[in-house]
């Protein structure tokens, strides 16, 4: 791919999704867009690009954005965030939310569903030990095809073997031909919806915990700050934001502070009174 075409895609992706692509990611463009070009019956990616540049068809743009929104994921990816959730965050919320007995969790870039289902598995174990409590999980993503797959909850033997023990597989999945389907009980704990992280987030409500992992790495610095500030506003006072293993708010001067006891976990730095005022509206 020539530099001119790269610049075209770079701008297109920034404008439509906020995905920031550095030139070392050119290989990502070619590997991900080649199948899109083929599916639209173009002989080559160059031909597809020429066509798109001549006519910016919104449907094609949407396909490009979806193909580029990363899908690298596995159950209990990086494991530490889920250990934090189980051992520290949920026990803390039991004290904090004793009045409502409800915990709201947002998986903000859920991709093909492995993250929200992993959260649901942890939540299920929590609920068994805490009858009368409710855990509401909202899972969103920008990519339609990933979201469809997430909602479907159908995984290959390879997918489920990545990150899951046999016990978890047997407890939460049923076999369907050669694939594994998430059991209804687990799926019903999650509400799936399409959402672009660059859009205003007020409609999402407030959450006790937000997982937004491995998305920020694709954003440029101003976008990163904007998204982090908006996520901070979606947190309940002393709510928790969990970022990817290589991501941090450090140096971005956001409305977040690092959680002292848990590495990789952030908390909102907004004065509690301001949030309470907004909640009272």
């Amino acid at each position: 791919m020539n530099l001119d075409d790269f610049n075209f895609y770079q701008k297109l992706l920034i404008d439509h999704s906020g995905l920031s692509l550095t030139q070392d990611k050119t290989y990502l463009l070619t590997t991900r867009l080649d199948p899109v070009a083929r599916s639209m019956e173009f002989a080559t990616l160059d031909e597809f690009t020429r066509n798109l540049r001549a006519k910016l068809d919104p449907r094609t743009i949407s396909l490009v954005v979806q193909a580029m929104a990363t899908k690298e994921t596995s159950f209990f990816r990086d494991s530490l965030p889920f250990t934090h959730l189980k051992n520290n965050i949920l026990p803390a919320l039991v004290k904090k939310n004793a009045a409502t007995k409800t915990i709201r969790i947002w998986s903000a870039a859920c991709s093909t569903g492995q993250e929200p289902y992993s959260i649901a598995m942890v939540a299920r174990e929590f609920l068994q030990a805490h009858p009368g409590w409710a855990v509401q999980i909202t899972a969103t993503d920008i990519a339609d095809d990933a979201l469809m797959q997430a909602q479907e909850g159908l995984y290959t033997h390879f997918d489920i073997q990545r990150g899951l023990t046999m016990k978890l597989i047997l407890d939460h999945f049923t076999m369907e031909n050669t694939k594994w389907r998430v059991q209804d009980g687990l799926r019903q704990m999650i509400r799936f919806a399409k959402f672009n992280l660059l859009k205003p987030m007020e409609s999402m409500g407030r959450f006790d915990v937000i997982f937004c992992r491995n998305v920020l790495i694709y954003f440029d610095t101003p976008t990163k700050k904007l998204v982090l500030d908006r996520l901070a506003e979606r947190l309940q006072p002393d709510g928790y934001l969990l970022l990817g293993a290589c991501e941090s708010s450090i140096g971005l001067n956001t409305k977040l502070r690092l959680c002292p006891d848990m590495s990789g976990v952030h908390m909102a730095a907004i004065p509690v009174a301001a949030v309470q005022k907004e909640n009272a509206k």
Binding site: M166, L170, T174, M175, N177, T178
Partner: peptide
């Protein structure tokens, strides 16, 4: 064998 009860048996 891709029957869940057999898999459970093996585990």
């Amino acid at each position: 064998q891709d029957d869940k009860s057999m898999i459970a048996g093996a585990v």
